[in-house]
């Protein structure tokens, strides 16, 4: 009797999925949206507090205000991380919306090309601005500059 038992798979054998060529790209995107979103709440709420709520709010913002903030490396890194996370988070969100509503292949392709172009331009420009910013340009009127410029030698 035992010799005639057919070769059956064990009842709880894991279901062998056919090998797929797809990656886990969308899964990582989904995780990124949640992780970056949580961080962005802290980054952006502090940004809004410092720039819009505290002191004179939006009225206090001028070239000197920005120069004063970026004289501190903490705000440079803060703004850099905020720029990159917000741009990737927002670009991925708009990509999802394009995929949902643009039904024609060509429309989707064109819209996403514009989206990725905008992403590249804004991220590269923003990053360069944070790191190449000169708070005390020599040809500018002193009253437009942060107060520490006047104490610099030369």
């Amino acid at each position: 009797m035992a010799a005639t038992v057919p070769d059956l798979a064990a009842p709880r054998d894991p279901y062998a999925r056919r090998k797929t060529t797809r990656s886990n790209y969308e899964l990582y995107g989904w995780i990124f949206m949640r992780a970056s979103g949580a961080l962005l709440i802290v980054l952006i709420f502090a940004h809004l507090w410092v720039n819009l709520v505290s002191g004179e709010g939006v009225n206090a913002i001028d070239f000197g205000f920005v120069g004063g903030k970026w004289a501190n490396p903490v705000w440079q890194v803060w703004d850099l991380v905020m720029l990159w996370l917000a741009m990737i988070h927002g670009t991925n969100g708009v990509r999802t919306i394009i995929n949902d509503y643009a039904e024609r292949d060509r429309t989707r392709l064109v819209l996403k090309l514009f989206l990725y172009l905008a992403f590249t331009v804004v991220v590269v420009l923003g990053t360069l601005v944070i790191f190449t910013f000169d708070p005390c340009p020599t040809d500018a009127a002193a009253d437009l500059l942060p107060s520490f410029c006047s104490s610099l030698p030369g």
Binding site: D62, L125, G126, L128, T132, P137, L145
Partner: peptide
């Protein structure tokens, strides 16, 4: 955000342009 990065980038042009 796109507009905001562009307006902030004016600090690289001149204090007058940004202000």
């Amino acid at each position: 955000l796109l507009v905001h990065v562009l307006d902030t980038a004016l600090v690289r042009v001149s204090p007058e342009a940004y202000n």
